[in-house]
Each structure stands twice: as structure tokens, then as C-alpha cells.
Computed example of a mutant assay.
Amino acid sequence: MQKDIGRVVPLVIIPLFVSVHRKEDYNFKNIYKVLGLGLFLGMLICWYNIFVSIMSRVDYVKQASYFFQWIYTDFNLVKPLDGHPSYFAILLVLFISAILFNKEFYNIRKNKLKFVLFLSPFFLFLIETNSRIGVIVLVMMVLYHAIKQGSTKLFLSGVALVFLIVLLAIKFDYLGSKFKKIFSPEGSVSIERVERWKEIIQVFNDEDNFWFGVGSGDARLVYRRAYYNGGFELALKKNYNAHNQYLEFFVSNGIFGLAIYLFVFFNFFRNTYLRINAIHFFIAFLMFSMSESFLGRSQGVMIFSFFYSFLLLYYKPTHNLSNAKEE
């Protein structure tokens, strides 16, 4: 009950706080500057924790070689922040996308060397989070803008980004292993989460609560029964959620809950016309919702609530589309 309240409160308070201000009260560039600064400080804290761990060992040179392995990536990476790597990853994707494509940051992009040096630590940290969906979404952003602008140069940059990610995935063996798990030994695509989702839907169908769901409390029981039936031992042991926000709403609140969540995205689409940073948010959360139960933690609710309400206010036309501010 307390967990549910902790998630609902930011979902109400943050949009209210944002909406009591006018669009003119917000400085888009400064908001993303503060986001970048906050991310960078968080990255420094995590890297300092890794540095202390390495230097505390007798053979610190050998210990440093583990920098690219699981011991210093994924959940272990963001442990000092008491956070989840996926939440950090989505913030990184939103920030990097704004720097790459928003006209407010054109001056940063003018000097290519400084631009690359500026973005490198953020990109490195994104890889360190081992967030497959974060990496995929960033590539999607680049390819989307390349197609929209009809830019061969930008498209080739997207291809180069994919090549760089492949190389880094080889070095960061845990990220590489996560991508390899997508393919079975026979070469066919096999994603364990998809198999878990199928089992969850099967168990949920037996509950006969299609319209209104089983409630957030009983949803965990559905997942555990599904993991037991499907033989997903790790998911059962770790008490995993569905790792799919659409499925979470469907099981907990039925078809009505899922429809409301989809309407939230439709409302965002209708009122922002998916301009620049609005499309970044739209793509990011649509995709992250497919692989994470993003609103299952208060951190995820706060991120979603702020960016949804802020971008909705910022891009919503005051009179008509021709007068809407384009970024």
C-alpha cells in the first residue's frame, strides 16, 4: 500500500507543480543543462566508487581490468546512487538526444572535437549501465532524424554508432552477453522476457479478470505462478516484475488500465505534434515500456511525470499550430 502511494503522489504533485507555471517561465536550455550536470555528478560518484574499490585491492592493476565486467557495471555501477540502471539510462538518452539534435545546443556541436569530448563520458556511462533498450533507443533517435532530414551523413553516423556499440559490447562482456541472449544456439531469435510474458498472459487468462485486472497486489502472485509454471527459476527467485509496463497495466488493471496508459501517449502525441524533444520522450518511453516496468518505482514515476508534463506544456500550442514554438 505504501509503495503504491509513493508512486501515485509524484504522478499527481509534479504535473500540478509544472502546470501552475506558464510556458514562458521555463528555460528549456537551462533545464537540460541542469539535467546534464546532475547526470555528470552522478557519474563522477559512481566512477569514484569504482576507483576506490580498485585501489583498495593489493593487485589494483589486475582489479582495474574488471572495469568492463559485471562487477563494475549494471546495478553495481549505480549502487552508490541507490538507483536502477534503466532509469539512469533513459535520462542519458534524453540528454544525449537533446545535445545531438536540439537547436539550443548548436554551439556545442559546432566544434566537432569538443562535441565528441563532451558527449563521450555520457555515452560511455550509457554503455556501462548495460541497458540494451537504452542503446537501441539512442540508435533509433539517430536513424529517425537521419530519415526525417534525408541526411546520408547522419544515417552513416547512425551506422557508425551501431559499429561502435558492437565494439564496446565486445569489451563490456556483460552487455555483449545480454545482446547474445537474444539469439539461440540455432541462430533464431529467442528473448527470455517474451517467453515470460507469454506465460504471464496464460496465467492471467485463467484469472478471468480481462476487463479490470487482478489489482496491483495480486499481480505479483500472477507473475510468480507464471515463472513457476514456465520454469523461470531466476525470475522466481528474484521476484521479478513483468519487465513490461503495458503488461503490468494489463494484468493489474485490465484492458481499461492499458487503454488509459495508451491514451496518455495519444494525448501527448496530439498536443505536442511530436516536435524534437517531444519525439525523443515519446520514442524513449514507448520503447522502455516494452522492456521495463518503468512506473513500478517512484524514480520512474518522477521522471515520467516531469518530462511528460513539462514537454506537454512547452510544446502545446497556445492558439494554433502555426504559432506554436518549434525547437
Results as ranks from 00 to 15, higher is better:
residue 2 Q to H: 09
residue 6 G to P: 02
residue 6 G to Q: 00
residue 8 V to D: 01
residue 11 L to V: 07
residue 15 P to R: 02
residue 15 P to L: 02
residue 16 L to D: 09
residue 19 S to H: 13
residue 19 S to K: 05
residue 21 H to Y: 10
residue 23 K to M: 03
residue 25 D to G: 09
residue 27 N to M: 10
residue 27 N to F: 06
residue 28 F to P: 07
residue 30 N to R: 13
residue 36 G to V: 03
residue 38 G to P: 05
residue 38 G to N: 05
residue 42 G to N: 03
residue 44 L to I: 10
residue 46 C to H: 05
residue 49 N to Q: 11
residue 55 M to L: 05
residue 57 R to L: 00
residue 60 Y to C: 01
residue 65 S to K: 13
residue 65 S to A: 14
residue 66 Y to L: 03
residue 69 Q to H: 11
residue 69 Q to C: 07
residue 73 T to L: 06
residue 74 D to N: 14
residue 75 F to W: 03
residue 75 F to Y: 10
residue 77 L to E: 04
residue 80 P to V: 05
residue 80 P to W: 01
residue 80 P to L: 02
residue 81 L to S: 06
residue 86 S to A: 15
residue 92 L to N: 07
residue 92 L to M: 11
residue 93 V to F: 01
residue 95 F to W: 08
residue 96 I to M: 02
residue 96 I to E: 00
residue 98 A to Y: 07
residue 99 I to A: 11
residue 101 F to S: 12
residue 101 F to G: 13
residue 101 F to D: 12
residue 103 K to G: 10
residue 105 F to K: 08
residue 110 K to P: 01
residue 110 K to I: 02
residue 115 F to M: 08
residue 117 L to W: 00
residue 122 F to T: 07
residue 123 F to Q: 04
residue 123 F to N: 03
residue 124 L to N: 12
residue 124 L to G: 13
residue 125 F to Y: 12
residue 125 F to H: 09
residue 125 F to M: 10
residue 128 E to A: 07
residue 131 S to D: 10
residue 134 G to S: 14
residue 135 V to E: 10
residue 138 L to N: 05
residue 140 M to Y: 09
residue 142 V to S: 06
residue 143 L to P: 12
residue 147 I to V: 15
residue 150 G to R: 02
residue 155 F to E: 01
residue 157 S to V: 12
residue 157 S to W: 04
residue 157 S to H: 07
residue 159 V to D: 07
residue 162 V to P: 02
residue 162 V to F: 10
residue 167 L to R: 03
residue 167 L to P: 09
residue 170 I to Q: 07
residue 171 K to T: 15
residue 174 Y to I: 12
residue 176 G to E: 06
residue 178 K to I: 14
residue 180 K to L: 08
residue 183 F to R: 09
residue 184 S to N: 15
residue 185 P to W: 08
residue 185 P to G: 08
residue 188 S to A: 14
residue 190 S to V: 04
residue 197 W to D: 11
residue 201 I to C: 06
residue 202 Q to R: 06
residue 203 V to K: 01
residue 209 N to G: 06
residue 210 F to A: 09
residue 211 W to A: 15
residue 214 V to L: 00
residue 215 G to R: 03
residue 216 S to R: 13
residue 221 L to A: 15
residue 225 R to G: 08
residue 225 R to P: 06
residue 231 G to W: 00
residue 232 F to K: 00
residue 233 E to G: 02
residue 234 L to F: 12
residue 235 A to V: 13
residue 237 K to F: 08
residue 244 N to W: 04
residue 246 Y to D: 09
residue 250 F to W: 04
residue 252 S to Q: 06
residue 253 N to I: 00
residue 255 I to F: 13
residue 256 F to L: 06
residue 256 F to I: 11
residue 261 Y to W: 05
residue 261 Y to F: 12
residue 265 F to E: 04
residue 269 F to S: 10
residue 271 N to Q: 05
residue 273 Y to W: 07
residue 278 A to D: 03
residue 279 I to K: 08
residue 282 F to W: 09
residue 283 I to K: 01
residue 284 A to Y: 02
residue 285 F to Q: 02
residue 290 M to H: 07
residue 293 S to V: 08
residue 294 F to P: 00
residue 298 S to Q: 11
residue 300 G to D: 06
residue 306 F to K: 03
residue 308 Y to E: 03
residue 313 L to N: 12
residue 314 Y to Q: 07
residue 317 P to Q: 14
residue 318 T to I: 14
residue 321 L to E: 07
residue 322 S to Y: 11
residue 324 A to C: 04
residue 326 E to A: 11
